[in-house]
């Protein structure tokens, strides 16, 4: 596997991960496929620089890596963004802002999480103030491994996400909508009294019923 000529290192791992993602998009109509294809061609990124990963996000837009050729470009506000990139470990304080930004994004929206910190807290695993498993608070669509992942890995992750969008697979935002009570309960557990006001999320429940 690791000795193939057309891939190396994490590329091969990525390929293994993607290999068993649903292959057929036969269930989709022409319109849905066209929409999916258009959506994946243009991703506006809200880069949330929480940890050290922020330093790897910047070169992505520069001449060397040029993410714009994939249609990936930065957005200034969450209202205009499609992808939220969580770059590294999250303190409880930052998580509140991340959730707020995520809920302000317009669907369809996706979350990419960088590095091991977002999976298990990484080197901050025993800190009282660090979020260990990001997926319990907001739905993560794509993890990019590494500590921290290089810009090439980021691009690889983005293209994998684009592939999923193109195939019209259900994104994390649908999971969030369906399981809003579970997510909110998890959030409440860390925030306690410090929850954002109810108007920021109660429309989710209204939409479900």
């Amino acid at each position: 596997m690791y000795h193939k000529s057309d891939c190396e290192g994490f590329q091969c791992e990525q390929r293994m991960l993607e290999a068993n993602l649903g292959q057929d998009d036969a269930g989709l109509g022409v319109v849905e496929r066209l929409i999916g294809w258009l959506r994946q061609r243009s991703l506006f990124v809200l880069a949330y620089g929480t940890g050290c990963g922020a330093i790897e996000m910047r070169p992505l837009m520069t001449s060397r890596f040029d993410a714009e050729r994939f249609g990936i470009i930065g957005a200034a506000t969450p209202r205009q963004a499609d992808v939220l990139v969580i770059s590294g470990y999250l303190a409880v304080k930052t998580l509140k802002r991340v959730i707020r930004s995520y809920e302000q994004m317009q669907e369809p929206k996706y979350v990419i999480a960088l590095g091991s910190c977002t999976i298990n807290g990484g080197m901050y695993w025993d800190s009282y103030n660090t979020i260990k498993c990001l997926d319990h608070y907001i739905p993560v669509d794509m993890y990019i491994n590494g500590c921290m992942p290089r810009p090439e890995a980021l691009i690889e992750g983005f293209t994998a996400l684009q592939e999923r969008i193109r195939r019209g697979e259900p994104g994390g935002y649908q999971r969030y909508r369906d399981n809003i009570d579970w997510y909110k309960a998890n959030q409440r557990r860390v925030f306690g009294d410090n929850m954002p006001p109810a108007y920021t999320y109660d429309w989710y429940s209204e939409g479900a019923t």
């Binding site: 969450p78 209202r79 991340v98 707020r100 954002p196 108007y199 429309w203 939409g207």
Partner: peptide, 16 residues
């Protein structure tokens, strides 16, 4: 389309 639940539901750099 959804109407914002509060006049303070603003994009305000992650703050409320």
């Amino acid at each position: 389309m959804r109407r914002a639940g509060s006049p303070y539901d603003l994009s305000f750099a992650g703050e409320v």
